[in-house]
Write a protein that binds this DNA or RNA. Structure first.
Lengths: 217, 217
DNA sequence: TTGAATACATACATGCATGTATGTACTCTA
DNA sequence: TAGAGTACATACATGCATGTATGTATTCAA
């Protein structure tokens, strides 16, 4: 029916279509409504094709998570990361519609034992990518400045909260107070960066950077 | 079979059992696995009883949300609320296992059109209970101190993030960094309270309260 | 006290998601 | 190029959740 294709070409193409369809369905309709029938309908393949490549939905979700994590953490290995740059990277990611797919799978892992058995290790492995240890230079500074790590985790949890707000809003838009919260986070990140930077190289950073306590509004 | 009971007594007792069973099932097994069969099994009633009182699961979830909101917001109408007291009230609530039931229903509302049609108004009405306007004295101060409202919303979203972390963890426990994040929030709340309080009654608050920039760690 | 309404209980029918089993066309390898 | 393996497609069977319809016991109201 199609043009001539190698086996691996057909396989990867079909699996890719299934992964994309599953992601889209998770975002638009949630975990509960994301059935194999719905996924195959979106992907334009039959359930036979799905069953040939994946033993269960959980298997497919494994590939979905791999795909999403790869998208989310691209470019996160900058060796000169600061709290501000880390925050800005996170901000560029959390508002993506696909983030809802991750939230759906997180909750599903907790709820569905069979799914969790297969996926939980992958979820846990992903979680380490968001820990400070994933940013060596940040982690190093945190050893001397525990307050920096506190700010890091505060930023992290706040972003998750904002992502959940988007995921639960009817059109996927952010809450009315989103901008002001982000502004607050940016201020905190910059202030803490200034503190940590100032103590590293004593007296040359303070003049060019705003003071650590600046809360301009 | 039972001792003599009035009609309304039997009704309220049965509905109460159904609400509790539904909440427990939402917490333990999530929205997807919370079927009418499962709820009735937990409640110890037949599906006939359930169908007699509720036209659908969505109707029951309406009562579930009412019950949970009543529990969560009890005592939130203190006229002398501060950011710190509001935060402490929130901290005493968000870690309750029942909070996961609310999260499940929030996401389900977004995912399930039929459910959302009936429940979304109720969810939105609940959301207003968490807005600053629900704390008149706080809202009044925020008019002169927009930064206070920023801190308020930051606290709000961070707590949601922490609640989600608990909801998605295998045993419902908080993340390792939970304590340090909460400590950071408390510091921010106290500092901002001091700022707002200091500007209200000029010079008597600063001596007894820690300075607004204190970040003791 | 008697009819009517309420509060259930039971049984049946329907729809849907999944799993499996088998058939077919294409591709690779020897 | 011929057999074998791969990549699907189709059909059937099963299980489960929901809705409905009807039956029964209890309570209420006149």
């Amino acid at each position: 029916m199609n043009v001539r294709q190698t086996h691996t070409q057909r396989s990867t193409a079909t699996k890719s279509k299934l992964v994309e369809a599953a992601t889209a369905s998770l975002v638009e309709r949630g975990y509960g409504a994301t059935t194999s029938v719905e996924i195959c309908r979106r992907a334009g393949v039959t359930r036979g094709a799905f069953n040939h490549h994946y033993a269960s939905l959980g298997d497919l979700y494994g590939d979905v998570l791999d795909d999403l994590y790869a998208r989310f953490s691209s470019g996160s290995d900058d060796p000169r990361a600061t709290l501000q740059s880390t925050l800005e990277q996170a901000l560029s990611v959390y508002a993506l519609p696909e983030f809802k797919a991750v939230l759906e799978l997180w909750l599903a892992c907790r709820n569905d034992e069979k799914l969790g058995a297969g996926l939980f290790a992958k979820v846990a492995a992903c979680a380490t990518r968001f820990e400070p240890s994933a940013y060596p230079h940040l982690a190093e500074r945190f050893e001397k400045h525990p307050a920096g790590e506190a700010v890091y985790w505060l930023i992290f949890e706040t972003i998750i909260g904002l992502a959940l707000a988007r995921a639960t809003s009817p059109m996927g838009e952010g809450p009315a107070h989103e901008a002001v919260v982000i502004e607050q986070l940016l201020t905190m990140a910059r202030d803490q960066d200034a503190v940590m930077c100032a103590k590293e190289n004593h007296n040359n950073a303070l003049s060019s950077q705003p003071g650590p306590e600046a809360n301009r509004r």
